[in-house]
Design a protein around this nucleic acid. Sequence first.
DNA 1: ATATTTTGTTAGATTATTCTAACAAATTTG
DNA 2: CAAATTTGTTAGAATAATCTAACAAAATAT
Lengths: 219, 219
Amino acid sequence: MASITEENYLKALFNLSNNQGEASISDLANQLGVSMPTANSMVKTLQKQGLCKYEKYKPVILTEQGKKAAALIIRKHRLTEMFLVNKMGFGWEEVHEIAEQVEHIHAPKFFERMDEMMGFPTVDPHGSPIPDKQGRIQELHLKSLSEAVPGQEAVIAALSDSSAEFLAYLNSRQLSLGTELKILSKESFDQSMTVAYGEKERESLSQKVCEKLLIRIFD
Amino acid sequence: MASITEENYLKALFNLSNNQGEASISDLANQLGVSMPTANSMVKTLQKQGLCKYEKYKPVILTEQGKKAAALIIRKHRLTEMFLVNKMGFGWEEVHEIAEQVEHIHAPKFFERMDEMMGFPTVDPHGSPIPDKQGRIQELHLKSLSEAVPGQEAVIAALSDSSAEFLAYLNSRQLSLGTELKILSKESFDQSMTVAYGEKERESLSQKVCEKLLIRIFD
DNA sequence: ATATTTTGTTAGATTATTCTAACAAATTTG
DNA sequence: CAAATTTGTTAGAATAATCTAACAAAATAT
């Protein structure tokens, strides 16, 4: 039912409201690269369909129906990304743009078949959870590397930034999901961390990078 | 550049003008399920982009540029159909609807990767030729089964109708591409033919069916 | 608490794609 | 060939998604 445009608004609202549960018109407009009046009028349209709650000058809140619709689009996006990497040999930095288009395809069997072929994965190539068929998302309470302390060991489980630039940076440092890190030290003046992994005995990672690496710490 | 709507008009024009090299406004409108004024105005839009030639009350003719654009969309459609059947386990009767959506994706690498994974197929699951990257189509001068005569042997190479209904009919008779047929007889009053293939010693095929089966006759 | 800035809204216009109604040209038929 | 039918066109309107300009409310900063 929802047009591609509407689907993109739902996805943006879902992503923006991950923390607060709500999103402002200006954030929404920014996220989608449209003007505020455009975002404003589309929000009214979505509200009429029961997908979000909206009152003048108040933030936008997705309804349960809206959240589910958004999660199901994200499910298609993440399944597609995983399929492109696992079954078609793409790099994790190449798949977002393609998945951005494939996610709007209406063909349940297509995505079910992908899911099956991959053995029902629970996360995408960047470690983000894949919502289930009911639109439920399994939260992965992960910490960021910046929260770890020297002496700890951890494995990279996900990323909080999956931009092609950041992924290219990680590629250049041989960092990927599953990489095991030993935290050697942390500089107090710039929060940068020195870590060891694979062949690398001492690598320095800036605060920005550490914040974006989501880890599971070994007990 | 072209919108999905424009791409669908190009494809329809290409298919309609396979024989004559031209298509009428009413055929175009019919094919796409839109009104004649709608088709008329879109044709004017395509003409402004140099994709077709059009004069009032005359049939529409695709330009070389228009033909190439259409062929490249058809290339994506047919590669997708083949991928769905060969790599994802779909039946040949299930793939048209999905390919109809996937063909509009702008991601050259995605389709090149499919092509590579399949070993550069030249025909789709219904035997229709896949245009090359330059939009050139290799014509497969095939005959229809109705042109064959008793005593001849032939193999089914393609179909001139790939509707889900016809494909379901063929499935129910165990007929598929590659099936080898022996023509036993032909009824002169209704043009139906009796053939043998696989386990079947005598199967009768109506004229309608014979016309839709494209064959290569054994020398 | 007033002034300034940011955020949000309304109004009005634009482009793409579609429609119906009315009319006109072309084709087919008797 | 004239009448009837089919095909095609024009005009005018509707919906979706977008914009800019102008104004209004809310938030922030002096």
